[in-house]
């Protein structure tokens, strides 16, 4: 009887862990760029500056075009937390200030990973992020150094 209880407890833990892993997989993102992009690796701070529009061009002259996913998506939340190191509210406050002081708009938000991939694949300076599960060969993965 005791063995059965232990077995049930372990099973519950495994199921819970599997649930968490599944959520993490949904939330995990990969940063994607156009296949012609010269970089393979980008630091987190550089990526943050690109998405804050503090850096407007790649070193070879192409206009940097950051693309956001719908803010309700788990990947967008994770990107905001891990790369931008901020919250949705602070980000919105930042863009209110930027619109007023510099006339600069936030990155365009697209509603699906497919739309982000299509945009990035057709714009040499574009950089975006999508859930890892939606990755395919039309775009190049950019590794992000913490």
């Amino acid at each position: 009887m005791r063995l059965q209880r232990w077995f049930a407890a372990i099973l519950c833990c495994l199921l819970a862990a599997a649930g968490n892993a599944s959520e993490q997989k949904d939330a995990a993102f990969v940063v994607i760029v156009h296949p012609s992009n010269h970089y393979d690796v980008l630091s987190r701070s550089r990526l943050e500056f690109l998405f804050q529009r503090k850096i407007s061009r790649w070193p070879w002259g192409a206009e940097a075009q950051p693309i956001d996913l719908d803010s309700a998506s788990p990947a967008a939340r994770e990107f905001t937390r891990v790369v931008l190191k901020t919250t949705e509210e602070r980000l919105a406050e930042y863009w209110i200030d930027q619109r007023a002081t510099r006339g600069v708009s936030p990155p365009v938000r697209l509603s699906s990973a497919a739309a982000v991939k299509a945009f990035v694949a057709s714009h040499p300076g574009a950089v975006g992020y999508i859930p890892a599960a939606d990755l395919d060969a039309t775009v190049k993965v950019m590794r992000v150094d913490p």
Binding site: L69, D70, S71, A72, R77, T87, E88, E89, L91, A92, I96, R99, A100, G103, S105, P106, V108, R109, L110, S111, A115, F119
Partner: peptide, 26 residues
Amino acid sequence: DPPQKIEPAPDTSAPKIKLPFDISGF
């Protein structure tokens, strides 16, 4: 609680009026 949606995501497939300027204010 999860943060509420701040900006509605523009759907590129849906036809919509695009202004030539970005307009904001308070």
